[in-house]
Design a protein around this nucleic acid. Structure first.
Lengths: 112, 112
DNA sequence: TACGTTACAAACCAAAAGGTTAGTGCTATT
DNA sequence: AATAGCACTAACCTTTTGGTTTGTAACGTA
């Protein structure tokens, strides 16, 4: 009707930070992948075996996403058969302790 | 090929707890609603005004979900016009500090 | 020569999440 | 009499997420 008031809502910086956090941890497997990486680098196939319920496509997709978010880094060694491993970046390691505390929340709400 | 090994994957309790946590915080608005409730009860209309970008339907939907998860509680006062308010449950308050730390993660990854 | 291993990519599909719009019952205000 | 405020509900639609399946290149092994 009247668009003098532009649609830009005042962007709450807290909201922005929360959204970024959600980008990183939301998704059925994100947190669990981060958790499995922990402090050790893991090969793609290793991760597959550690999380058998995830599909290949989704694992790769999630790893890619985590790489582009800057949480995980990927190293390819030029070998045959191919060899690739994934590990947490420095920032990823920084936030790991906070993320691991999230299991406590789940545990609290799991008990009846 | 051979299904002697049943498909039931060993349910990692960590994974279970993480999934529960994700149930609680995932969703575009969940965390922000929890954050807005903080330690005060808020009326439905108040929340709407505090988070203008959310649609009515989604706000109610998320509040319902949070109530059934045991994070939020709802009180209806029998008045006209209707009056309802939402607040964190005891468990909700317990986990609030951990959840608030998540903004720090977002902030870390927001900076270039 | 056929097959397995490794780390993917592409095509396709179903379910879930998020969103728009309109309508409800009651009262108070204009 | 029409409108607005409150706290919703219902119908519908689009986008995102997660998943299955098949294919790939390079080599080693049976």
């Amino acid at each position: 009707m009247n668009d003098q008031v532009s649609k830009q809502q005042p962007i709450d910086p807290k909201h922005l930070a929360l959204q970024k956090t959600l980008d990183i941890i939301c998704g059925k497997w994100r947190l669990y992948i981060i958790y499995q990486l922990g402090t050790e680098a893991r090969r793609y196939g290793e991760l597959r075996r550690m999380i058998p319920a995830i599909s290949e496509k989704v694992l790769i997709q999630e790893l890619k996403a985590l790489v582009s978010l800057g949480v995980v880094e990927k190293k390819s060694y030029n070998e045959v058969p191919p060899r690739v491993d994934y590990s947490l970046t420095e920032k990823g390691l920084q936030v790991l302790p906070t993320l691991l505390k999230l299991t406590a929340i789940g545990e609290l709400f799991l008990e009846p």
